[in-house]
Design a protein around this nucleic acid. Structure first.
Length: 273
DNA sequence: AGCACCACCTGTGGGC
DNA sequence: TGCCCACAGGTGGTGC
């Protein structure tokens, strides 16, 4: 479900709501949701800790506590939402509830059960346990020069697969990758070594623009995504190619769907070369 | 190194 | 109309 913009929208919304809140004992409906440490230790250790701020790296939400860090990855259908009162939550996919000592709570719902949470002691553990294979945040940690240097090391890769590789740079997912490649007019199956310097600059600008637009419009709700208040995103109506197989591109050609890097891939055969 | 394939889960929608 | 299966915003492991 969520790519960088959706996670960022949730981060911005949750941070002011959660700052200085103190966790009570969690309720783990599906203990497997806890990736680290054990569910028992997670529950015992989280209680009593306070939220300092919320950061993000790629698609990971990083909730900094007065001791340690609570990391969340929503994977395909995960959804975090904040409930101000202590009312029971009616949600058949509720996986865990993290109540605060003021009666409010942070809930994690996830239809497909792929989402995970980690509680680590410090940044060393965060890096070695959670972010082992996660590269620099593609929106916040890279300038155009950095990006081109990273590309230079990946001459053999195909563009779509590379942009989806979180180890290369973190944050792009299937929707924003297709949209970004449409915006810069580059075919998703192109090899990195075929790109001109101008192509690379356009690509970098398109990445920034498409992610910024995604955030600006509250994320993309293709099926399940909701922000932390339960509202839908608004970027789906602005998608140029994703989910638009056989629809007409603004150039008049029909948008095609194929499979690249194992993922459904939409592109305009006329605009993208 | 890069890629294809499967696994993890549950739901849905397009095609027959 | 109803059934079935391919596919869905992600990632980790395996094996070529």
């Amino acid at each position: 479900m969520p790519e960088l913009p959706e996670v960022e929208v949730i981060r911005r919304e949750l941070e002011p709501l959660l700052i200085n809140k103190i966790f009570d004992a969690p309720v783990l409906h599906i203990p497997r949701t806890i990736a680290h440490p054990t569910p028992e230790l997670f529950a015992a250790n989280l209680a009593g800790r306070a939220v300092k701020n919320i950061m993000r790296r790629g698609k990971y939400l990083l909730i900094n506590l007065d001791r340690g860090i609570l990391a969340v990855h929503l994977r395909m259908t995960g959804n975090l939402f904040y409930a101000k009162d202590g009312m029971p939550v009616e949600d058949r996919f509720l996986r865990l509830s993290l109540p605060f000592n003021d009666g409010s709570a942070l809930h994690f719902s996830d239809m497909r059960r792929f989402g995970r949470l980690w509680l680590v002691d410090d940044y060393y553990q965060l890096q070695s346990i959670v972010l082992k294979r996660v590269g620099p945040d593609i929106l916040n940690d890279l300038c155009c020069e950095d990006f081109m240097q990273l590309l230079a090391r990946k001459e053999k890769s195909r563009l779509k697969a590379l942009l989806l590789d979180q180890g290369f740079a973190a944050g792009m997912g299937n929707i924003y990758t297709d949209e970004c490649l449409f915006r810069c007019g580059i075919h998703p199956d192109r090899q990195v070594k075929s790109l001109s310097r101008d192509d690379m600059e356009k690509l970098f600008q398109s990445i920034r623009e498409v992610l910024s637009d995604g955030i600006k419009y509250g994320g993309t709700t293709f099926r399940d995504y909701r922000n932390a208040s339960g509202a839908l995103g608004d970027f789906q109506s602005r998608l140029a190619v994703y989910g638009r197989k056989n629809e007409q591109c603004r150039c008049g050609a029909a948008i095609e769907k194929t499979k690249i890097a194992g993922r459904g891939t939409y592109y305009c055969p006329r605009c993208q070369k």
